[in-house]
């Protein structure tokens, strides 16, 4: 089944406390597109993600997903997205396998193990995540991308703490996702190695 994504952001105005984060921000994310949100530290990249998911109130402007205003109907967007934040929700007392089973209960054991292989965590499947390094913990969360069929990925700093091979593997996987009609919106300070992205620049006011 071909995935379809159509996210439109029109003249979005966000503020946090007394600080303006973005004014008149207009962009779209559609099937097959990789959108990179750029901006210096504190420019509001994460806040933009949170605004899309509805955790941060928007001051003015519209966010539409598949033609529906998400401030009215957020269910469609929530059902279509996979969000990985700065802290991606990995429980340190659980093993990578148990963490994945929490988020992907439908997947078979074999599929879960395969996903962990993809992120080079095969041998660590049964070790409590507390004993893993920062990069390995992030890989546990990223393994969900190999198990999901959600069309829209919202990735906040997915490359942080990843090594070179890890970045390449993730970029390759993002490429397959885009080719199958999915869309990815990500924030990063690193330059993308193999992918070309549409850049949305957040200027600090």
């Amino acid at each position: 089944m071909q995935k379809s994504v159509n996210l439109q952001v029109n003249q979005l105005y966000l503020e946090r406390g007394d600080r303006d984060l973005c004014q008149d921000l207009t962009f779209s994310v559609t099937s097959g597109e990789l959108v990179r949100v750029a901006g210096e530290n504190g420019a509001g990249k994460s806040s933009l993600m949170k605004a899309l998911l509805g955790w941060l109130p928007i001051e003015s402007g519209q966010i539409e997903y598949k033609g529906e205003d998400v401030t009215v109907h957020r269910d469609v967007l929530l059902a279509d997205q996979l969000y990985l934040g700065h802290t991606p929700g990995i429980k340190t007392v659980l093993t990578p396998l148990e963490n994945l089973r929490l988020y992907c209960p439908e997947a078979s054991l074999q599929a879960l193990e395969q996903a962990l292989e993809h992120v080079q965590l095969g041998p660590y499947a049964d070790i409590p995540a507390a004993q893993l390094s920062a990069g390995q913990k992030r890989r546990v969360a990223l393994a969900r991308l190999w198990l999901t069929d959600k069309p829209l990925w919202l990735l906040d700093e997915p490359f942080t703490a990843l090594d070179h091979a890890g970045v390449l593997a993730l970029e390759a996987h993002i490429k397959t996702h885009l080719d199958s009609g999915g869309a990815v919106m990500l924030t990063t300070h690193q330059t993308l190695l193999t992918l070309s992205a549409k850049t949305v620049e957040l200027a600090a006011a």
Partner: peptide
Amino acid sequence: KEDFNDGSLEQWLASG
């Protein structure tokens, strides 16, 4: 506390 620190609360909200 732990759910807040490790980002699980965000995942609850994003889970739909």
